[in-house]
Amino acid sequence: MAEILQILILGLALGGVIALMGSGLSLVFGVMRIVNLAHPALIIGGAYITYLAFKAFDIDPIAMLPVAAVTMAAVGVVLYRLLFQREARSAKYSEMTVLLTFALAMMVEGLLGSLFTNTQRVTSPDYATAAFFIGDVFIPKGQLYAGLVSLAIIAALSLFLKYSRLGYAIRATTQNREAAELLGVNVQFISVLAFAIGIGLAGAAGSLVSFVFSFFPAKHWEWIAMLMSVVVLGGMGSILGTVVGALILSVVAAFVGTWIGATWSTLTFFLALFIILLVRPQGLFGEKPEMA
């Protein structure tokens, strides 16, 4: 019983971080129909920003989170203007953007690789290796903090989307871009905004990832399928779905990892992705079957 509780807690804490990693991906797809394969590579970008600050000035990774988020959001604006703005009216838009973001992922990987080499990195604040104990169950502080911060950020994002005027506009654009435009929403601005928020979330996730996982530039290939499975399970474009998908899958993966073997825990995500795409492509909360 204690073992099950232990695995559950580890899975949930990790699930929180994965939810944050996936939320930006989901938002960007929802508003712009861009399947951003470069999202994990940009998360790694955020992780390096945090890592550098930690190594050079001993700045705490969580304290560095806003900086990483804002920096990556700015990167997002530039990327949007350079890569996606002109594609907005392309006929094969969705396929085109997948390939473009794939190219972008390679560029980011290559750039980070030439700057920082492919050595495994990790930031090591004190809490990264510490843990709370409740009876026999231990909760690693690093994962717990990262999970809680992630969920707090996602909660703030959800409130913003639900109650602010801009959030209202973002949701309307997600549902029907043309209609939103015709009703007075500046969809160009909303697109840039949503893209910037999405990439900013990648930056924020990067800060947390930096002490939860070890990372190197090529690591993002492992994450893309993992995040895709989370986002697709939840339903592309649905933030709530992403959170639920992340929690479910990472708990399942934690059980698989403990009981069957660590190798198979990663496989859980990929197999899940396969199965979801085939059985229910719109995901749990998705309302957009045209994705399929």
Binding site: E95, L99, M228, V232, L273, F274, L277
Partner: peptide
Amino acid sequence: GPSFIISSIA
């Protein structure tokens, strides 16, 4: 479309 591309990566 995108779903197929993602499944191929998986």
